[in-house]
Amino acid sequence: VQTVGQWLESIGLPQYENHLMANGFDNVQFMGSNVMEDQDLLEIGILNSGHRQRILQAIQLL
């Protein structure tokens, strides 16, 4: 089972590990259960829309 940090590294966005972990997104399986939306990522400080889309697309593959 991948950690959130390993998963972010695999999609090329390791800089957001602290954003996700500090806001309770600390379990890759949980994130894959379709609980995260674009607005959630924006609210936790991921401002780059391309990065948000990449995260959301990768979540669909979990």
Rank of each mutant, 00 (worst) to 15 (best):
G50P: 05
V1F: 11
E17S: 07
Q6S: 12
N23E: 06
H19R: 10
R52L: 01
V4I: 15
M21R: 07
P14R: 09
L8G: 01
L20D: 00
G32N: 12
G24A: 05
V35Q: 13
L61N: 07
P14I: 06
N48I: 05
M31E: 07
D40H: 09
Q2W: 10
E9F: 07
Q60K: 15
N23L: 13
D40M: 09
P14D: 05
L20K: 01
I44P: 04
L20Y: 01
L8D: 00
L56G: 04
L13N: 03
L13K: 03
N34C: 15
L47G: 11
E9N: 12
N34Q: 13
D26K: 13
R54Y: 01
H19A: 14
G32L: 14
S49P: 13
Q15K: 03
Y16A: 03
L56A: 05
A58H: 08
L56Q: 06
L42R: 12
V35W: 06
I11K: 00
G24M: 03
T3E: 07
W7S: 02
V1A: 06
H51I: 02
Q29A: 13
R52F: 02
S10N: 09
F30K: 15
L42H: 07
G32V: 15
L47A: 12
E43K: 15
H19P: 06
Q2M: 14
Q57I: 06
S10H: 09
V1N: 09
I44L: 11
G45V: 03
A22H: 10
Q39T: 11
H51G: 03
T3R: 06
S33E: 15
G32A: 15
A58W: 01
S10C: 07
S10V: 06
G24E: 03
P14L: 06
Q6A: 13
I46A: 00
L41G: 01
N48D: 15
I46R: 01
Q57F: 07
A22T: 11
Y16P: 00
Q53N: 13
Q15Y: 03
L8M: 02
S49W: 09
G12W: 00
E37Q: 15
I59H: 14
S49A: 14
H51K: 02
L61V: 13
I11V: 06
L41A: 00
V35S: 13
L56I: 09
I55F: 03
D38N: 06
L62P: 05
I46V: 10
Q2E: 09
A22E: 12
N18P: 11
G45R: 03
V1M: 06
V35M: 13
G5T: 07
E17W: 04
N18Y: 12
D26W: 08
E43L: 08
H19E: 10
L13V: 04
Q57T: 13
Q53S: 11
H51W: 01
N27T: 14
E9M: 10
Q15S: 00
F30L: 15
S49D: 10
G50S: 06
L20N: 01
G24S: 04
G12S: 04
H51A: 01
G50V: 09
Q15C: 04
P14T: 06
V28T: 10
N23W: 07
N34S: 15
G5E: 06
L56H: 05
I55L: 11
M31G: 07
I59K: 09
S33V: 12
E9I: 08
V1G: 05
I46P: 02
R54V: 08
V1L: 15
Q6D: 15
Q39N: 13
N34T: 15
D26G: 09
F25Y: 13
G45K: 02
W7Y: 03
S49I: 10
S10K: 09
Q53R: 13
L8P: 04
E17V: 11
V1D: 10
I44S: 06
Q60I: 11
S10Q: 11
L8S: 01
N23D: 04
V4C: 05
R54M: 07
Q6W: 04
R54Q: 09
V4H: 01
V4S: 04
D40F: 09
F25S: 05
G32T: 15
M21W: 05
G24K: 06
N27G: 07
L41N: 03
L13G: 01
I59Y: 10
L42I: 13
T3S: 14
G32W: 11
Q6T: 09
E9C: 07
W7M: 09
Q15W: 02
N27E: 10
I55M: 10
E9R: 09
G45A: 01
N48G: 02
I55C: 00
I44C: 11
Q53E: 12
H19D: 10
Q6L: 05
L62A: 04
L41E: 01
N23Q: 07
M36D: 06
E37G: 12
S33P: 07
Q53G: 09
L62V: 11
F30H: 15
G50R: 10
F30P: 07
L47H: 14
M36A: 09
Y16C: 03
L61Y: 10
L8I: 01
N48T: 05
I46T: 01
F25Q: 04
F30S: 15
G50Q: 03
F25C: 08
L62G: 05
L8H: 00
R54I: 09
N27I: 10
M36W: 11
Q2A: 08
